[in-house]
Amino acid sequence: MRRRLRAARTWIILIVGALLGIALAGLNQTGRGPLALLPGRDVTWQTVESRGVWRVGMDPSFPPFETLDAAGAPAGYDVDLARSMAEIWGVEAEIVAIGYDSLLDALQTGQVDSVISALPYDPRETKDFRFSAAYFDAGVMLATDETSVIRAPEDLTGRTVAVEWGSSGDMIARRLARDGIDLTLAQYATPDEVIEGLVRDDGVDAALIDHVTLRQAQGRGEPILAAGESLESAPYVIASPIRAPQMAARIDAALEALKNDGSLAEIETRWFGPLPEEPATP
């Protein structure tokens, strides 16, 4: 009788153990299971390490983030960012040129290990990809000249605001107007004309423009400042496969390191030019 009981107990332990094993293996297939967190389980990161090459997908058609230089080689903010991160890990960054609309497909099918391509964060894609912390916010900013007292949208009452006709900045300005801020819109055909309108002071008090346009203008030496944070955030992030938790963790750690040691700011200055100096507060 006792032997039977012992045999039954052994069988139960074996069956439960097998089921647990199957469940863990199944969970791990998703890349979200507990085994994925164990060292050495991230195939993407393991491959990058063993290969010594980090394959980064990028559409080189969006300067200054990514473009092709005179020799046809990829160059830009994102290229330097990739190389700086790779340097931290002791590997080489290989830029793989892919059309913008196919970048995430290429990541999903394993053609590249990560994507860095002025890629806006998309919460809906988090079921399939891991996204890093933001390294640049391209959202719409309120821009003014250096002497302006405008610091926030509420200060726009009675003011003239330059926007690119039909753009996100235009949409936000119209929203502010609907919300009761009595502003006058000055609509221009292109972002560069918006900057010109603000700088040459043809009755324009402020502009609502995307951060990339603003930063480029600042880099050219235009005396304009961002008043506050972006009014509608559009963070650029780095994407990795969902089954690559270690890859994603290392990307975040490298970004943090580059931010802390000033490298990220250096890359920004290299591709956008220097920021104007903030006016001294009285």
């Binding site: 330059a162 107007a177 819109l185 609509q187």
Partner: peptide, 15 residues
């Protein structure tokens, strides 16, 4: 039409 001319078009209150 600002898309077809260099000078800005001005609209009070965005309307």
């Amino acid at each position: 039409d600002p898309a077809l001319s260099a000078s800005p078009s001005q609209n009070a209150g965005g309307q």
